[in-house]
Write a protein that binds this DNA or RNA. Sequence first.
DNA 1: TAAAAATACTCCATAGGTATTTTAT
DNA 2: ATAAAATACCTATGGAGTATTTTTA
Lengths: 309, 309
Amino acid sequence: MALNFHQLHIFYTVADKGSFSAAAQALFMTQPAVTMQVKALEEYFGSKVFSRTTKKIELTEAGRALLPYALRSIELMKETEAGMTKYTHMLQGRLQLGASLTMGEYILPHLLGPFGIQYPNISVSMKVMNTTQILEEIVHHQLNFGLVEAPIDHPDVQTEAVMKDELMLILPTTHELASKPFISWTDVIAYPFILREQGSGTRRVMEEELLRNGHDPTSLNIVMELGNTGAIKSAVEANLGITILSKSAVKHELALGLLTTKMIEGIRFTRSFYSIYLRSTLLPLSAAAFLGFIREQDENQRRLEHDHS
Amino acid sequence: MALNFHQLHIFYTVADKGSFSAAAQALFMTQPAVTMQVKALEEYFGSKVFSRTTKKIELTEAGRALLPYALRSIELMKETEAGMTKYTHMLQGRLQLGASLTMGEYILPHLLGPFGIQYPNISVSMKVMNTTQILEEIVHHQLNFGLVEAPIDHPDVQTEAVMKDELMLILPTTHELASKPFISWTDVIAYPFILREQGSGTRRVMEEELLRNGHDPTSLNIVMELGNTGAIKSAVEANLGITILSKSAVKHELALGLLTTKMIEGIRFTRSFYSIYLRSTLLPLSAAAFLGFIREQDENQRRLEHDHS
DNA sequence: TAAAAATACTCCATAGGTATTTTAT
DNA sequence: ATAAAATACCTATGGAGTATTTTTA
């Protein structure tokens, strides 16, 4: 047999965990299988890579030499998969996704549609639960991927900020506030305000964020409540009022110069989301594709923002 | 199946050769096997990597993206094997070595002994033939490794300079020529000279090199002909005469300060040897071990030379 | 004596081979 | 028409599992 990624991956995991059984668990295989692969590696190189007693395992000189190569090969595998996600449109597979309440309720529905179009052969199953439960299921290989609202500190889990969403004040380009350099909360409540109907997710997020920033949503001068974001944007364009929406919701109108976004003095409506997944196991390609997809969305948004900054 | 070196290697070879059949030949496997592995890779990524008609093969966008990763993975494999040769002492295997006449007659006998001690489980078979024949057998997988006297220019063959041997004038540290900054051929023939007996390989190499540099070996003032290099060194140490030997033959005496080496004005007894092997196929570990072994010898020599320069 | 690793065995997936068919120039 | 890739089919190997034994702290 020739040298291969798989054995190096197993070798690395054993070295990392300091035990064959622990590595087996992390790799979701049995201990004898791990023993076998390490043995094969040792036969290949004609040299033991671990000096082992039942209680303690230690890298030999050869093992210490091999370790950095093994690490690099794992990195390279991950890079390769990440670099290839753009081309995985017809990929088959199953994506088992855990999402926090907010993620699952307000963000993912808008992502899963387009994702399903791009990847018609990946079946996505999403479970909405709290962060602790998601973490638990990821560690036990019940889920291969999670999206949560706070970074996770766990040695086996990789956390990465994947989306930044920012709510902004949305005005017609011609609005008198558009030329004002600094806009305060007092300015905002002085003008007619348009928003989504009571009970909508978008409205709830907006109100929660306002409260978090110490402002009372009921002090807004609400002139209109509309059933969808498109209607709100049209109303603002028609100069019927102003609103607060996520920047990404108005990217087209920004591009066309119909609307402008403004920050409100002393208020920051930013939040990040975090992808979490097992460090030890290679992310399934379907999950890698999803992660790539999310990053792409994020990039597009960022690029648009940049074009109009 | 997970991503692996093997498939990337095959993919790269197909891209490199521009044909499945050619790649199969280079990889020493059959065309259907190559087709299979490429297909598996394409299924893995959910995307074709080649657009193929029977006459022409072309990388798709995905293929172009994958190519650099494949190359890197091959490089990494090679690096890993090269980096691990130091630890492959108990390696099993067969090394089929082709060597040019000079290599096989004068150099290899001195290397194969120590190599056999370090690698008792590698059986070495050496074939002495001319460079063209060696090249031929390497390309057709009859030999996995060759050592020749000139660099080879062939697209599928990797050439690397592996040993530099230099003959030097050897003197006792106390000899009056030792303090002379420049030594000419006239100086050399003015002093008693010691060398190996007629018919010895070392003597033959030395005489050939002298002739190549335009000097007549018979003009030497020969006072002694001895049966082995050790005896010659002792004789020179005892101030019975001077000699010409390869630098590496006197490294211990140089280190101990018993002898000095000098260049002879206008004469350069240098020559390089070259290892040659197939670029497309991964060098068998036994061959890699041998290459590493040769490099090590070379390094030791170089280091010693440096210490006394 | 109680864990962790090694061994024995069984089974199945898959890689590779041979023979053949399809395809595109 | 021909050369190259794809397909069909078969075999053998080896990777992974379960069950068990060996090892050493």
